[in-house]
Amino acid sequence: MTDFYALSAQRGDGAAVPFSDFRGQVLLVVNTASQCGFTPQYAGLESLQQEFGHRGFNVLAFPCNQFGRQEPGGDEAIATFCTSRFQTTFPIFAKVEVNGAAAHPVFRLLKSSRPGLLGIPAIKWNFTKFLVDRHGAVVGRYAPTTKPADLREAIVALL
């Protein structure tokens, strides 16, 4: 299995971000979309970022258009939407695929580490969340219906 910290991704502005930059932090990796029924969860994600960011926590958002084409915009439009509507301060990466042959390597790793219901690795919808501990181990997978606030206890336990 690939080491989480050996991976990298492009931010929406095109800058490459090595995940080694997040070594020692607790991370919540989320596939997001701006036109989804779960889009208001951005507010909850930002709330977690504000509450725990100073303690070594980060939300990593990966916009994805694979589910109902609910993320049709370009990377700049997505970033503008997130910052203007939800005042996000956490990293918003470039749009990725999370399933299929073109799935971003981070999602291949997350899904293989924490398959979904009945052991099926595929992500079923936007706002699936993966919790990564300070050592890069994927320790939790949460359904889109799980509200960010419901993850507070799990995050605190890792901090």
Rank of each mutant, 00 (worst) to 15 (best):
T39W: 10
T39D: 11
P40H: 02
P40M: 03
Q41I: 03
Q41D: 03
Q41Y: 04
Y42N: 05
Y42H: 04
A43S: 07
G44R: 04
G44W: 10
G44L: 11
L45V: 14
E46S: 11
E46D: 14
E46R: 12
E46T: 12
S47Q: 15
S47D: 15
L48Y: 05
L48M: 08
L48K: 07
Q50V: 01
Q50D: 13
E51K: 13
E51C: 03
F52L: 12
G53D: 10
R55S: 14
R55W: 09
R55T: 09
R55C: 07
G56H: 11
N58L: 14
N58D: 13
N58M: 13
V59T: 05
V59K: 05
L60S: 01
L60T: 00
L60M: 12
L60Y: 09
L60E: 07
L60R: 06
A61H: 11
A61Y: 08
A61D: 02
F62V: 01
F62T: 01
P63N: 02
C64Q: 04
C64V: 09
C64G: 03
C64E: 04
N65Y: 02
N65W: 02
N65E: 00
N65L: 03
N65Q: 03
Q66P: 06
Q66C: 01
G68S: 11
G68R: 07
G68V: 07
R69I: 01
R69D: 13
Q70W: 12
Q70E: 13
E71R: 08
P72K: 02
P72D: 08
P72I: 11
P72F: 13
P72N: 07
P72R: 06
P72Y: 09
P72S: 12
G73D: 15
G73F: 11
G73H: 14
G74D: 15
G74K: 09
G74Q: 08
G74H: 07
D75L: 05
D75K: 03
D75T: 02
D75M: 00
A77W: 03
A77D: 13
I78C: 04
I78M: 10
I78N: 01
A79Y: 11
A79F: 10
T80M: 09
T80I: 13
T83N: 10
T83F: 08
T83K: 15
S84G: 01
R85Q: 15
F86K: 08
Q87W: 08
Q87H: 14
T88V: 15
T89C: 12
T89D: 10
F90K: 10
F90W: 08
P91F: 13
P91R: 08
P91W: 14
F93A: 07
F93K: 10
F93S: 05
F93R: 04
A94L: 04
A94E: 03
A94V: 02
K95M: 00
K95I: 00
V96D: 00
V96P: 10
V96C: 03
V96K: 01
E97A: 08
E97Y: 02
N99E: 01
N99V: 05
N99F: 05
N99S: 07
N99K: 06
G100A: 04
A101R: 13
A101M: 11
A101H: 13
A102C: 10
A102F: 05
A103N: 05
A103P: 05
H104A: 05
V106D: 06
V106F: 07
F107M: 00
